[in-house]
Computed example of a mutant assay.
Amino acid sequence: MTKVWFITGSARGLGRSITKAALAAGHQVAATARNPEHLKELTKDYPEQILVLPLDVTSPDQIKQAVAQTIDRFGRIDVLVNNAGFGITGAAEAFTDQQVRSQLETNLYAPIELTRAVLPHMRKQRSGRIMQISSIGGRIGTPGVSIYQAAKFGLSGFAEALSREVAPLGIRVTSVEPGGFRTDWSGASMSYAPVVEGYEQTVGFVMQFLKGDGFVPMGDPDKAAKVLVDLAEHPEPPVHLVLGSEAAAMLQQTDKLRKAEFEQWLPISTSTDADDATDFLETEAGKAYAKIKGVE
């Protein structure tokens, strides 16, 4: 079935691969980018299927305009892919205020704003798919990318909560969490904070690793794009989708460590209950609350 896709960051990297894959599959695509000139080739190849729109995702006015233009052209939006973003590396204390704000505005606030702009249309349709392109860095903390990962942890959490909020409306939400992929994320899309002494073994190591020739990501963005186009057709998509063997292995190891730490400190966790406390989750109200939260 032909769907209408709205994709941010379509000009390069994973966003371009997703745009090409959706078009090749016969879908209609609103392809957005800061510089639409970079999408000329796709416009020539798919003149009837593609709507190229300029979009700075940090501009609420441009977001509203792009969504309205898509609805005017195609009549609906079936799949929203919040892909636009960029990385930044450095010690948490070293980032400038502007660097912190730009990370949160682009990687967290923008996808939230776009989601909020598209949701009324999906709600009226009683259908839709939202793919938040987060990162394995939205599940695992890594030195040197604390601000980037603050945004991605927030995006993954937003996706999980939203998925339970909109499920009765026929809308499905997935937090897509890739590991390293062969895009320009660590190249032209990467920026750095000023170097601060004392972090040589942690942040310094990560900086040198990303800048060096030894970092060759395992992930193929075209393969990831095909997975996501197929995912839009799946009746029960996952809330979290990890992409890449490296990311999967890292998450498995991290989950083991987290579980061990949780169990070690569980007696302290439960010691803070009031003396007359009852188990809320065993009450009827508690069971209903647990069902909504998806922890039954």
Rank of each mutant, 00 (worst) to 15 (best):
A110E: 03
P120C: 08
E113Y: 00
S134W: 14
P143M: 01
Q132C: 04
P111M: 01
R126N: 15
S156G: 09
P120A: 07
G144D: 06
L155I: 11
E93L: 06
L108K: 01
I147H: 03
S156L: 12
Q125F: 09
S135W: 02
S156Y: 02
P120L: 10
G154K: 10
Q132H: 08
G138Y: 13
D97E: 13
I88C: 11
S102A: 13
D97T: 13
R116K: 15
G138L: 14
D97L: 11
G144R: 02
Q99M: 13
A110H: 03
Q103T: 15
F95G: 09
R123N: 13
E105C: 02
T142M: 08
I140Y: 06
F158C: 06
L155W: 12
Q99G: 09
P143V: 04
V118W: 04
A159N: 07
P120D: 10
I133K: 08
T89F: 06
T96P: 11
Y148W: 06
G154P: 14
M131V: 04
A92I: 14
A92F: 14
A91Q: 11
A84P: 00
A94P: 09
F158P: 04
P111Q: 08
P143L: 04
G137H: 14
D97N: 15
A92T: 14
N107T: 00
A91E: 14
E113F: 03
T142L: 12
F86P: 00
F86M: 05
K152F: 10
R101Y: 12
I88Y: 03
I112L: 13
